[in-house]
Design a protein around this nucleic acid. Structure first.
Lengths: 147, 147
DNA sequence: CAAAATTTAATTTGATACAATTTAATTGTT
DNA sequence: AACAATTAAATTGTATCAAATTAAATTTTG
């Protein structure tokens, strides 16, 4: 049997999995200050951009399903950062709208990406390469599942 | 306020987070066949290589802490894939040893990395670049925390 | 055109993983 | 030797993920 193939160091997925976890954990102290988890933070990033959006579309942007989003959005609603209301046209769908408090939180959140950038020990060039490869991977996996 | 900085598409962390989740989810159907979660699978990969190892060292290899490992290892023990026993020299430490059934599982697991490789839509060159950048990120973050 | 079947969207449920706290053992200091 | 500090794992509470469920809309078929 080929032993090498089952070694951790020969897997691409493992450093991806571990690096993602480690980077997300770097966010924690900064996100604690504004009372969000990382997942809530990326949801709020979409809300700051779109103001109002359906749960389904939100999930498509973030690669999250409603099983994760439903409880998460209820928590954001209980903090008065978003409003949730069923669509009039389609009773199955739920629309999410950012509140004033949600908008206001953006002012505090602005420092988060700045603080984080300084924690990422890669050159601008390396970051760009990594970014491009990750998006390539992500997009291709995505359409691989759809098609 | 600079709006651009808080957009999802301008974050490096987001594609890292999303790609890791998507790739791990690609493992699911294959890992289901051998009854492991992804995290259990990477633990078993270390066990196949080391045969016996302390919980602490295991965690260092995998960037996992005892809060994750303790219950996970108890589950692997209940499936008779590993044995857990307190160290005689240091009663705080727990040593993990792979069982025969654990060794036998390796035969079935051998197909997993092969199947997955074919799901990764990157060229060998791109994979190598990605791998190197992820490890650079991981190692640097790691020593940043230690020092 | 109406009823049944299929598809779609969100919710709920159960299991796993993560972060913080606690407990227990060891090491270092005086 | 006694106390404080450190280290290792376990425990606890919260969040996330996957699968099954519920409810609404659409499509198919008679």
């Amino acid at each position: 049997m080929n032993d090498e193939i089952l070694k951790l160091e020969n897997q691409l997925c493992f450093p991806l999995y571990a690096a993602a976890k480690e980077v997300v954990s770097q966010y924690k102290p900064w996100l604690d200050k504004i009372g969000l988890t990382y997942t809530q933070y990326i949801v709020m990033m979409v809300m700051w951009e779109y103001k109002t959006i359906g749960v389904k579309e939100l999930g498509q942007h973030l690669y999250l399903d409603s099983g994760t989003l439903t409880p998460l959005l209820k928590r954001l609603e209980s903090k008065d950062l978003v409003r949730r209301e069923r669509s009039k046209e389609d009773e199955r769908a739920v629309n999410i709208t950012i509140t004033e408090a949600g908008e206001a939180l953006k002012e505090k959140a602005i420092e988060v990406p700045m603080k984080l950038a300084s924690c990422i020990p890669l050159s601008p060039e390396e970051s760009r390469t990594l970014y491009a490869l990750l998006y390539k991977l992500l997009k291709q996996l995505d359409c691989g599942n759809a098609g």
